[in-house]
Simulated scan of single mutants.
Amino acid sequence: MGLTMTTTAPGAPVTAWADDIDQVLAGDLIAALTVTTASGDVVTVPTAPLGLRDRGQGWVSCFVPARFAGRLDQPGPIGRVALTFLSRAHGTATSDAYLLVQGHAEAGHTIAGAIHSRASELLEPALVAAFRDGWRGERRHDAIGVRVRVHRITTWSDARASGIPTTLGAAAAAAPLPQPVPSHAASGVDARNAVRRFRGHPHRLLSYAGGDGFPVTIPVRILEAGEQGIRITAPAGTLPAGDRRAGLLALSYGPRLTGLSTRHHTGWLSKHKDGTATYVPHSGYGHHLPQSKALRLLAGAKHRVLPAR
């Protein structure tokens, strides 16, 4: 699925974040990049942040596997995004925090310096070569550099995003308004099959457009699946009221980013009075790579579109 973004003008970046936040940005092995496409869908893809950030200048960067990148391989602004730091697994940070970094992004940014040694420390050797072409800015590369000019950092104290978050930078956005139900709101993917494919993927992330247009990505727990869709729950205060487009990502990965496996869906989210919500998947695809063949994802392994039923 190609990612076609709309652009907006950035404001002043957030700078001088605290050491505990910087530790997470520096040490996490994986992060999730969320964008809103031109068609209005919300899409989240895995990225390798490699600890790339600058507190003084107010930016955080990552590399996106080329197969996920779509039109990100065209240099230039890509608009409002969210970069979510969701897990300390296999990284070097020790905090339990869940970080949502929102900002304006540019694709195709060339980042050099000490990146090779950083990648060699965190990734398996085969992946290092794939990323090297991306940060050199070569025309045919396997990973796309994305730089995010930080607008807001929202931090929860644990990986479940429970409790009251703290916000650095722009004030927290107002709740987004409900969206009109589209004519194609019926599911194009069997919800039960979708949930079965989530097995072995412990990280489940829901994404939607926030009240100020920046994407929001939160961890969710799946309760059940049936003919009406996938019933989910999320930490208090994180699910917006009403109906809207949303993306759902299930993710697993191993040490040094080997064995990366994902399941992606675009669809429709409806929140209920009891605080739970139903997610109706419209489309989906996934990647699953054996531990020894993780490089295939970065080298452009084809994704498989899930059957309609």
Rank of each mutant, 00 (worst) to 15 (best):
R140M: 10
A225N: 00
R53N: 13
A172C: 09
R152P: 00
T44F: 03
L260V: 09
D243C: 08
D20N: 13
A175V: 06
D96H: 09
I232C: 05
L298T: 03
A129S: 15
V101N: 05
A130Y: 10
A89W: 09
L25C: 06
R309C: 07
A69N: 00
V181R: 15
P215R: 02
A250Y: 03
A191I: 05
S283P: 02
F68P: 04
R196A: 15
R149S: 12
P307V: 06
P182F: 06
R71L: 14
G247S: 03
P240D: 02
A32E: 10
L50F: 02
V45K: 01
F131C: 11
R136D: 12
G113S: 08
T217Y: 03
G169F: 00
V128Q: 06
T84L: 08
Y98Q: 07
T258M: 10
A161D: 05
G286W: 11
A112F: 11
K273W: 12
E224Q: 14
I144A: 02
H184T: 15
W59N: 06
G254Q: 10
T110W: 10
D212I: 05
T154F: 02
H201Q: 15
P10G: 01
G11Q: 03
L205S: 08
D243V: 12
P65R: 06
V128G: 07
T36W: 01
R304Y: 12
A191F: 01
V14E: 03
Y98L: 05
S61G: 14
L72F: 12
G229D: 11
F68Y: 15
P240T: 04
F85Y: 15
V42M: 05
A159C: 07
R147T: 14
W156M: 04
V189W: 01
Y98T: 03
G211C: 03
I232D: 10
A236I: 09
L50K: 07
H288C: 13
L29M: 04
D54F: 00
A185F: 13
A209H: 02
T276L: 01
A308R: 14
P49R: 05
T84F: 04
A301Q: 15
L123C: 02
G226I: 00
I232Y: 10
G284E: 07
I232E: 03
Q228L: 12
K271G: 04
V216T: 11
A93Y: 03
A294R: 07
V146I: 14
P10C: 07
R139G: 10
L83K: 00
T266W: 08
R204D: 04
R88E: 14
A301G: 15
R197Y: 09
V60N: 00
A186Y: 13
D274V: 05
C62S: 04
G91S: 01
D133L: 11
F131K: 08
H303P: 12
A97S: 12
V128D: 05
L72W: 11
I218V: 14
T7E: 13
P307R: 07
Q57H: 09
D190I: 04
I115M: 11
P281I: 00
M1Y: 08
I111E: 02
T36D: 06
A112L: 11
S39D: 15
G79P: 01
P10E: 08
V43F: 05
L248D: 05
I30G: 09
I164V: 15
M5K: 06
G103T: 05
V195D: 06
S252N: 10
A12Y: 08
R196T: 13
R231P: 09
H90Y: 14
G2I: 12
D20V: 12
A119E: 00
